[in-house]
Amino acid sequence: MKVKLKVWRQKNRTSAGEFKTYESPELNPNMSFLEMLDVLNEQLAVRGEEPVAFDHDCREGICGTCSLVIDGKPHGPHRGVATCQTYMRSFKDGDEVVIEPFRAAAFPLVKDLVVDRQAFDRIQQAGGYISVRTGSAPDANSIPVPKEDSDLAMDAAQCIGCGACVAACKNASAMLFVAAKVGHLGLLPQGQPERYKRVKAMVEQMDTEGFGACTVTGSCEAVCPKSISLDFIARLNRDYAVALLKGDPKKAASGGA
């Protein structure tokens, strides 16, 4: 099979980009989408053209590095899988396939199909953790966690941080990502001491990064490779409301040694 590829090419953040059309070489339907791009790139290199830059690493759907908006859907035509697990048999011989980068102000473009998703790291750094020093932890079984809570926390914790939720949302909102993080830690007893501090800090950082707001369209859930539920966004909204109502903690009285 062969496909016609319409690929976004852009040298760097500041230069203008445009679509370029390429005829794919002969493809095997069992190729993954990224392998198709590998083959295209080998062909381009041999022809003396610069290969298409795209993000990828583990190629088994867990590292969250791969991206791409394929024919209007982040991570390609299937639900619950990442681009790296999309295979060419999902396309027909002669199809035109349009490949665009994730588009969001908070994900500035680096080159061609590569965007910078470090805004996610900064949101995590704002509070996506439990403050426990190495060595200070009590025995793991000293804190029982109801299985239901632990399973639900795991549903959220599986987020691979790919950013497809942002890419799909018409408002480029990062709510599903932040909700997954806040939900995961907020569901566990270990996460309670910092629960409200965390949600405030992470939401504020999310706003600072320039993501849009959630208008509950559900695109994020539909494209998430881990099918993370909108329920977690509701949970985030709830926690943030409580955090706002609680207000900032009273300043502790100062003291000296």
Binding site: V132, G135, A137, P138, D139, A140, P144, P146, D151, Q190
Partner: peptide, 22 residues
């Protein structure tokens, strides 16, 4: 043994039994 303690305290959602233990 310390690793498991450390990770559980960090909020790693290990599989649990119905009694809430690992």
């Amino acid at each position: 043994v310390n690793i498991i303690d450390q990770c559980a305290a960090q909020g790693v959602p290990f599989a649990r039994e119905y009694g809430g233990l690992l």
